[in-house]
Amino acid sequence: MQIFPCPFCGPRNETEFHFAGELGKERPDTTQEVAAPDWATYLYAQRNEKGPVREVWMHLTCSELFVMERDSVSMEVVGSGSLREGAE
């Protein structure tokens, strides 16, 4: 049972969290023409890295969507940061 750090709530048990996706996906502007391969990449392509990863998670109890850095092999958690602050 892992401990994840919510940027707002602090360390909490992994059962309170939900994986939302890999960091770095930007939604294409769909009011413009989006080529099928680009849309398919957006929908389906995953890096699925082994080792250090940066991911988006949601802390379900407070609904915070945030960025977490962790190691997908050792399960070590490096840290987390607000998605908003990261976006600014």
């Binding site: 939604r27 988006v56 949601m58 609904s63 915070e64 969507l65 998605l83 908003r84």
Partner: peptide, 14 residues
């Protein structure tokens, strides 16, 4: 609810 929260915070002004 989760769907709304996720999109609210990702790509919109929360």
């Amino acid at each position: 609810r989760t769907h709304l929260e996720a999109w609210r915070q990702d790509g919109n002004d929360p």
